[in-house]
Every structure is written in structure tokens, then in C-alpha cells.
Design a protein around this nucleic acid. Structure first.
Lengths: 256, 256
DNA sequence: GCGTGTCTGTCGGTCAGCCGACAACCGAGA
DNA sequence: TCTCGGTTGTCGGCTGACCGACAGACACGC
């Protein structure tokens, strides 16, 4: 019964678009910079600036979540506390990005915290003002939804990685993801200028500090990367991607 | 330098709102039913209906992602393929929900697939039509953002669970999450009328089929749940939450 | 210069959970 | 009725990664 037509209408019409499985495009979705300058001015006029010191929090878990934030300068990490007490880093925000948006639209309090990695300037906007701004500036609606979608994508990828890769691969993929978003090319190398402790890496990837130390050491010995004062330089992106694809378990033949 | 005022301005002003750490509110965010009936009529007028047979796909990874979907009846699961070939279930959609939204707003092709768990009726709307609809119906904007935010929250929780809980706990939490969203109370019990194979559970939670079988068996023996023809009935929510909180590793004292 | 705290590197012991294998089960179809 | 594909239940063996522990390496402040 009922029309039994082609069930899938959204199929790969444009052929091989999914070519690179690792070819993720982590568009930083810079909200502020992609806004028209008129719109941006309107937004800045509504917002109040705030300076957050290094290690300071912009908001924390349990808060009411009645404000949206825009990062003007600095670096902010979004964390979710685990029941065991450690903070799991979900992602970093760079200048231009919007954050704290999810709880505002969803309601019901913050489930994540935002900490400044370094001294940061943020713009604060109340929920009310933000929504009226959205009403008056339709372009901003699209940008907001893009920001949310982009994160959804990143988190989906994290989930898949966590479920199906071993520690080695997870770290490799994390580095690639970070490189795509936060990497700066300096003569051949890719510099991640997000200072990261091994423990933080462990918390992004679901391992222990020791394992991270070991794996990073391995990578260094293989000539994949080098480290300098808490910053990682990727020396061979190819090698790294190779590692990230080499999934341990009974290498899949999965021809289909 | 720079004003050194209260860094955190969004703190728990309303006190203990974060009381229950497991007290997650997985609002199903029923897009269609929360729309005003006039708006809904307008949307239905724009959309074209589609019937998807059991096991059929609405869209798949790699597709262009130029449509948004609304579930009228049936049940749809959103999956992301892992490099090892298995499909990881990110969440289920129930009637009234919107799906396929993230890729539409973000652009750049589908990264997930949507499969019908049972024969389902969906409404299909092109990206273009959807955005013009949003322009004309501001309430729908909020609902869309809520849908995205709600998923963001769920995924964040999944990530944290995967990172910090053992298999036992992960399964317990999954069941609680499912119960909150898809559970129907029937005389004392909570019935999850989403038919799930152990393998699917394993893929939602990052373990193996065998482990799931074992753990579910344990739970059954403890009187936590019973199963009947692929459906799970939770008999003691209390016991289950208790298990889900009992985190294995060196029970944290973390007084601070 | 010297303490002090945080971070990195390394090493065994231990165990949860993966893997493979196999038997029983069940519902659907012939 | 019997077959058959998919699902469930159970069992050892094996191992990746966690845990605790400790020693060096830094950086920072006094």
C-alpha cells in the first residue's frame, strides 16, 4: 500500500562529493566577520563589552544561560564537566565566533562552561536583544544556524571517533581537526597556536595523560610533528592522515 | 591592564538549578506540533509528501543536502557511518520532528544518513522554500534553532559519556535517555517502544554486541528491566539511575 | 640563586572489554 | 512442516589502555 516510489530522493545526485572521508571542512563560521558591516555595527551597539582574564570563566555550567557572546579577541574553550570531575573540552572559539548560543535558544540553563585560554574581549548580548536583532537582520539568522550546524557536525564526528577508533587514531584525528581550524602554515609546517597540555588533549579525546604523552612521543619519533613550548607543529600532514586512516582492528575490507 | 571586573557575569544567579546531574530534559522539540496551525498549514502547502518504506533511506551520507524533512508518522534514525563501516546511531526522530536541517544550513553535503525504522511519512521541503518560509514565519526560526540546540546538547552528553563512563554505565545512561524521550509509562513500567537490536545499542554506546548482551542480561537479573520481543521495559528507574551514577573508577572524592 | 608548582616522559602490573567461536532461539516464508 | 537469516546468550583467550608511581624538565616568582 501507499506509493512505493524511490524512497531516497536526496541521493548523491552530484556524484562523488563524499570523496575524502577525512576531508572535513571545519569552517570556523566567523559570525562577526561574515556579518555585513552595517549589521555588525548594529549588533555592537546593542552589546556590552567584557574583558575576561586568562583562566576566567565567561559562563559556567548551571548558570541561567540568558546571554549570547561574541569573541572579539583572545581564545575561549567550551567545556562540559564529566561526572568524574574533569572538564571535557568540546571545542575552542576564535575571534569572530559566537558562543553560548545553544542554551539561549534551547532554554533550561547552561550545560557547558566557557573559559578564556588567554585574556579575551567578548561582547555580551541578552537573549532578548539578540532575538530582536535576529528579527531585524535576517542574514544573522542564517549565520546563527550555520554556527549551530557546524558544531553539530564536529560533535557528530567526535562521537564517531570515540566509538570506533583506538587512542592512537583518535589523537591523530584530533590533531588534523585542530590543524584544519586553528592551524597556521609557516614554511611547510602547520603550527597549532593553541597551547595545549597533554592532559587537555586527553580530555578532548577520551584517554589518559600518560597515553597522550606516549603517543605524541611516538609521533615525534616518526617525524610527524615536533613540539615547542606547549605548541605543536605538524611536519607531515600526509603521514598524520595516513595514521588516522590505518584503523587498528582487522583492517576492513568492506568493499561495499 | 584593562578593566578587571567580575569575569563571570552569567553565574548561577538562580542558585541550584543544576541540581540533578542526570536530570536531563530531552525535550523532543516537536517542530510541527509546536507551530501555530496557520503556520503549519503554510508549511504543509509548500512541502511535498513522501512515503519511505521500512529500512528505506530518506537521505544518505554524501548526498547534496538540499532538503529539509519533517516526520509526519513513523520513526527515523539518524546515523553516521564510522570508518569501520558500521552505522552509528546519533538519535531517533519521532513524528513532528524536523530533520536534515544541519546540512541544509551549513552546506557542503550530508555527513549523516536517515533511515526509516518503520514505514514513515515525511514532508520534503527544499532549502530555498524552507528559508523563505523562515523569513515569513519568525516563530519557526526559534523552533529551528531549538531543534539544533537540543541535538547539540544530546551529542555533548554523548561525548562526555563516551569519554568518562565504562560500558556498564554508558548503557544505563543510554536507557535513561531513551526513556526520557521515547518512553511510555504503562502501569509502573516504562516501555521503550523503539525496537532495538543489541548491535544497534552497541553502536549507540560504543561497545560490542556481546558486551551489550551481557550487560542487559545483568540488568534483567537485577530486576532493572525486562525485554519482550526486542522492546525494553524499564522496571525500576531508580535502580537504573543508581547504576548510572555509580561510576567505576576510584569513586571520586573531588570535594572541590 | 633556590624553592615550588605544573608539566612531560617512562615503566610495570592489572583488568575491562574486544575478539572469535559456537549453540540456541525465533519469526518469516516456502 | 522445515529451512533459513538474523538475533541472543555464553565462553575463554588476549591485549590496549588505565592506573599509580616516580624522575626529570621547565617556568615562574622571590
Amino acid at each position: 500500500m501507499i506509493s512505493h516510489e524511490r524512497p531516497s530522493n536526496d541521493q548523491n545526485a552530484d556524484g562523488s562529493h563524499a570523496s575524502k572521508p577525512g576531508g572535513m571542512q571545519h569552517t570556523p563560521s566567523r559570525f562577526l566577520t561574515r556579518l555585513s558591516s552595517a549589521d555588525r555595527a548594529a549588533l555592537v551597539a546593542l552589546a556590552t563589552p567584557l574583558c575576561v582574564p586568562r583562566r576566567g570563566s565567561v559562563f559556567t555550567t548551571g548558570g541561567p544561560g540568558k546571554h549570547v557572546y561574541f569573541l572579539e579577541s583572545g581564545k575561549v574553550k567550551i567545556c562540559q564537566p564529566s561526572p568524574s570531575g574533569s572538564e571535557i573540552i568540546l571545542w575552542f572559539c576564535l575571534p569572530g565566533e559566537i558562543f553560548g548560543l545553544a542554551e539561549v535558544s534551547h532554554g533550561g540553563g547552561r550545560v557547558v562552561s566557557a573559559y578564556a585560554c588567554e585574556e579575551s574581549q567578548v561582547l555580551v548580548l541578552s537573549q532578548k536583544d539578540f532575538f530582536s536583532f535576529l528579527g531585524a537582520h535576517p542574514d544573522a539568522v542564517l549565520l546563527s544556524m550555520q554556527a549551530l550546524s557546524s558544531r553539530l557536525r564536529v560533535l557528530g564526528e567526535m562521537v564517531v571517533n570515540l566509538i570506533s577508533d583506538d587512542a592512537n587514531t583518535r589523537i591523530a584525528k584530533l590533531l588534523l581537526r585542530l590543524a584544519a581550524r586553528y592551524g597556521k602554515r609557516v614554511d611547510g609546517y602547520i603550527l597549532l597556536d593553541v597551547p595545549l597540555t597533554h592532559e587537555e588533549i586527553a580530555n578532548m579525546v577520551g584517554t589518559t595523560r600518560q597515553t597522550v604523552t606516549t603517543v605524541i612521543g611516538q609521533f615525534r619519533r616518526q617525524g610527524v610533528l615536533s613540539t615547542e613550548s606547549r605548541r605543536i607543529q605538524i611536519e607531515s600532514e600526509e603521514l598524520l592522515t595516513e595514521i588516522s586512516l590505518a584503523s587498528t582492528p582487522t583492517a576492513r575490507q568492506r568493499l561495499r
